[in-house]
Design a protein around this nucleic acid. Structure first.
Lengths: 193, 193
DNA sequence: CATAATTTTCAGTAATTTCTGAAATTCACG
DNA sequence: CGTGAATTTCAGAAATTACTGAAAATTATG
């Protein structure tokens, strides 16, 4: 491996972490390398830097493209394919969230919904189904929230995140305004979201 | 395997999914079984239901305890250990988030902070370090938000999630109130959270 | 403290996943 | 359309991870 110590440590770490994120060591390292690079790299450069076989790098890049985590581009007067990651970190976060949802959450949710339709055959089944129903609701709440916030532009999203729990205080103010009116009144204050 | 079809499908699915969540098939299935069960189960019952070896079940339960995802309890006049998952789904979500943060995010964050301190030895290094710095900031923003919302009680958390992007509209109202005052004014409106 | 029920450990094996090198394929360009 | 540079495929090897059974350790109880 031919890398400056700083980059080496980063790349190694993401190799290990890759495993926890549904990709293998090779893929984690390739991604980390491209992420740090100040220019697109071609497959042979990656082979050189990381010491994997050419075919392994080829497969890794394929998978990273399937995840939409790297993009392919051509340089003028060069037949080779060059790869890079987005400059914008938020774009990366959004892609990761999108892909993980598609791979982990969506299939689970459709199974849960399907199971919730089945007719239970015993008390045990009835309990299991109740549990499955609760789980479905909770996941729907979480993914619904996600579907909402992902529509926000980055600037608003950052502000919202920076607010953190403070948003809660603002909501309390909102509620208090409803309880002790001074301005316009809602028709039915009990009907909470 | 000795399970009603409904439970069987659920258990199988979480066996596969377990792999994506940092545990293996056995552990995913054991957890799913306990999750659906209407009463605590002992190791031999799990062996019976899932068809794994006794030792494998023992190791799986150990790991689930390390994750704090199952709790051990004793029944009166019975020497065996019984296991169950929390009734409250939110408790489960919180535990999962806590554990994944501790296993994936925290080690990454401390490495990134360390690397940000190193002295770069080249232009390439300088670019890499800038990227690492950006990443650190972004992760800090996300974990800061998480640290805030996890302190909310379940009721408030659910309401906040249900609001979704609508919270954005409320914030806009808040901003407008600051810009066109009518009530009490903050001392220093620029000093945002 | 002896016993028997229960749980854990661990060395070896089975299963799975990752990785490689050789061969096949693709593709731009003359 | 032939050439050669670049990429991909894939069968098998290597490495890793999961699982088992036998033996050891633990623990409640008489």
């Amino acid at each position: 491996m031919d890398l400056a110590p700083l980059q080496q440590r980063f790349v190694m770490h993401f190799g290990e972490m890759g495993a926890r994120w549904g990709v293998n060591r090779t893929i984690g390292q390739i991604y980390a390398l491209l992420f740090l690079s100040d220019r697109p790299l071609c497959a042979d450069e990656i082979v050189e830097k990381l010491g994997f076989s050419r075919s392994n790098v080829s497969m890794g890049l394929k998978e990273l493209q399937a995840w939409r985590l790297v993009t392919l581009q051509h340089l003028p007067d060069d037949r080779r394919e060059f790869f890079s990651t987005p400059e914008d970190l938020w774009e990366i976060v959004r892609t990761l969230a999108e892909q993980r949802k598609a791979r982990e959450i969506d299939p689970t949710l459709s199974l849960l919904r399907e199971l919730a339709m089945e007719t239970p055959t015993s008390d045990e089944d009835r309990h299991a189904q109740a549990r499955i129903g609760e789980t479905t609701q909770l996941i729907e709440l979480l993914t619904g929230w996600y579907d909402d916030v992902r529509k926000l532009d980055t600037d608003r999203l950052e502000k919202l995140l920076a607010l953190g729990a403070a948003v809660q205080r603002i909501l309390e103010v909102k509620d208090r305004l409803k309880l002790f009116p001074g301005g316009r009144q809602r028709a039915n204050p009990d009907k909470e979201v």
